[in-house]
């Protein structure tokens, strides 16, 4: 399968990427790891006229200790997140979610920024972003702005990112004392989740993000509220399908997804010691 023809531009820096985006606007797409965009282009579900390759902007690949939070560069590859010691000690939920992405080859190429910017409700990473209350740092022609994960994911493969903006950094508050679990139900190794749950149990501020349970990445707000008011695992997990609208597809009906969300949330809460 060969994608439609396009013009290839390589950006050497974030500034260069932004100026190319300014030049080509919505004819252009940023290319990070390419592991969501290239498959779409091969199936001809996307055919951008211009690709701006940011894959080699290496100064956007980092995990920095920034006091109360970690700052993660958008171009940090999944593999580098998976084995990063700061992430392992300060927010192991993100490492666990990342280990569930595809297979080693996919994790060598795909980036956290690409997974977030793609806004796929079936992806594991946005669920972890929601559970961890991540903040997205977006750069555009008129400077930088910050958006909470809750406001960032706006629809199916839609985010708050504008045509001339790029995701630069992700900031996540450290939660070294929280317990966590990442639950993913699929049928074959390496597959995407039929349903998944990213669970962070933290005194008074628990977070639960769901995979593939709505048209956009979404939090299980009812479960969080129950947890924060002291409910046990079974009672909190019973709320997992409240207020969300899961899709039906070849893999699962709506009812089955609702059932999976409750079961996986309960398992996750139990694993997290709730």
């Amino acid at each position: 399968m060969i994608p439609a023809a396009f013009d290839y531009k390589r950006a050497g820096s974030a500034e260069e990427a932004l100026s190319l985006l300014g030049e080509y606007g919505d004819d252009a797409k940023l290319l990070a790891g390419g592991h969501s965009l290239i498959p779409l282009m091969k199936y001809r579900l996307a055919s951008p006229a211009v690709l701006i390759d940011i894959g080699k902007v290496s100064d956007l690949s980092y995990v920095n200790d920034a006091g109360d939070h970690l700052a993660i560069g958008a171009l940090t590859r999944h593999r580098d997140i998976e084995i990063n010691e700061l992430i392992g000690s300060q927010m192991p939920l993100l490492a666990a979610a990342t280990r569930n992405v595809g297979d080693p080859q996919v994790r060598h190429r795909g980036t956290i920024g690409g997974a977030v910017a793609h806004g796929d409700p079936a992806s594991d990473i946005p669920a972890a972003m929601l559970a961890l209350r991540a903040t997205m740092v977006i750069a555009g022609p008129s400077g930088e702005r910050e958006v909470a994960a809750d406001d960032f994911f706006s629809g199916f493969l839609e985010t708050d990112l504008g045509d001339t903006e790029m995701l630069k950094e992700i900031r996540i508050a450290k939660v070294p004392d929280a317990t966590y679990s990442f639950q993913k139900f699929n049928r074959r190794a390496q597959d995407w989740a039929i349903v998944g749950a990213a669970i962070l149990v933290n005194n008074g501020s628990s977070g639960v993000g769901l995979v593939n349970m709505d048209s956009k990445p979404i939090r299980a707000a009812a479960v969080e509220a129950a947890l924060n008011s002291g409910a046990n695992a079974a009672d909190a997990a019973a709320q997992a399908a409240e207020g969300v609208e899961p899709p039906a597809d070849l893999n699962a009906t709506v009812d089955y997804r609702q059932h999976l969300a409750r079961v996986l949330t309960r398992r996750g809460l139990e694993e997290a010691g709730r």
């Binding site: 290839y8 290319l31 390419g34 290239i38 690709l51 080859q105 060598h108 190429r109």
Partner: peptide
């Protein structure tokens, strides 16, 4: 289609030569 790109296994059907 797995090859090593800068020493790491990747799927070469999902990488443009230009990258």
């Amino acid at each position: 289609c797995t090859i090593h790109l800068n020493g790491e296994a990747v799927k070469s059907c999902t990488v443009f030569a230009a990258q």
